[in-house]
Design a protein around this nucleic acid. Structure first.
Lengths: 217, 217
DNA sequence: TAGATTGTTAATCGATTAACAATC
DNA sequence: TAGATTGTTAATCGATTAACAATC
């Protein structure tokens, strides 16, 4: 009866991965939870607890081997396998995501882009031709697709998600400003940019208030 | 000794705002925490607790007035005031953010774009001319700037952040894949896209395992 | 007034931190 | 071996949920 890894832990894993990578590049061979704690501004306890959700990667009296831990966390994150992503929505955001090497660097490859605008058909983004939505089912049948990226307006997101789910997709990276409803075996990762900037705004307001209070209101 | 609003609460506020907007558009006049709870898949208790961090917006026996609550949450999020955003980094992502109306809709306006590539100087994005980084200080001195958006490579993010902080910026929306160090009175909201897709991957792996277990391994 | 539903206090649950025995 | 540091159990803290008196 292994219990699920909690989302707060999952959220922290890519951050560990990034810092381990940094230490590796610095040529550091080993690191203790105490050192990493200092570097990342989290407690050493939390680091050890987090890692031990997935296994014991350290060694008493020594700490963690940087390269090995980096590799292990990479595996936990699934970065040892390639992921084929298709983008639905060839607008500016879709284009931006298709054009960067920020994801291929980690083994996530954009393999196709679809858009419902017939006029865009054949337009190239970074060597990837834009396809029309008609071609989606056929493409899906003939190619491996691991994740779908939704960069379409909120109004159409649910309908497109339903279509993808029917095709068999198991992971959706959702940039549409709406919460999707999907079956239990499908995971959705939201990037709600408007929500994000609102949070920034709210945090800014709160911080201003705090500063005012500290300065005797 | 008013205690801070916790980040988990802050994270939920834009979501309430979205659903209230939806109810408004549906022509709904009032809503109870129980109804909203059903709609949003959170507990009614949590909704009432969250809102009461900011004030009592409801009425016993009645519930909440949709329009009024929407407006109040808007104020809490600072959406009643306009925010001027400058984008640092005129690459694909910077362009995409400058081109959408997803933010201006909520009173966040992109008012300038800066890039260190001299060749881009004068290029227009959505009526906004790209400026060179040399022009930043002068622009900042002459215009109101509420937030800076960092869409530059991780290598330069800290250095640019330092420069912005020196100019007096209090809010940074950071798309660079790195954690920024800023003084206490500056807030940073990260959008780490690579982290995000890794989380999707990890969640997908976990979900697969779960499904396998349910099906008798 | 009676019914409904809030605001808020109390109880529970989960996540973080502390402590320390195990062990390299 | 002695010192260091993990993995893990126990204690604390904070967030969520439940309960209910206040009140519209």
């Amino acid at each position: 009866m292994r219990k699920d890894i909690s989302q707060v832990v999952i959220k922290r894993m890519p951050r560990y991965y990034r810092y381990l990578r940094y230490l590796m590049d610095e040529g550091k061979e080993r690191v203790s939870s105490a050192e990493l704690s200092e570097l990342m501004s989290v407690t050493a306890s939390q680091i050890r607890q987090d890692l031990n959700n997935f296994g014991g990667f350290g060694q008493q009296g020594y700490g963690y081997n940087v390269k090995k831990l980096h590799e292990e966390i990479g595996k936990i994150l699934g970065l040892d396998k390639t992921h084929n992503l298709i983008i639905i929505g060839g607008g500016n955001l879709g284009k931006a995501l298709a054009s960067t090497d920020a994801f291929s660097k980690h083994n996530f490859y954009i393999t196709a882009v679809f858009d419902n605008n017939e006029k865009l058909k054949g337009t190239m983004i970074n060597d990837i031709p834009i396809r029309t939505m008609d071609e989606l089912d056929d493409y899906y049948a003939k190619n491996r697709v691991d994740m779908a990226v939704l960069t379409i307006p909120a109004e159409h997101a649910q309908e497109v998600a339903d279509r993808l789910v029917k095709l068999g997709i198991k992971a959706i990276w959702n940039f549409a400003q709406v919460d999707l409803e999907v079956p239990d075996d499908v995971v959705v990762q939201n990037v709600h940019l408007a929500d994000s900037v609102m949070r920034l705004s709210l945090n800014m307001i709160q911080r201003e208030k705090q500063v005012n209070i500290e300065n005797g209101k």
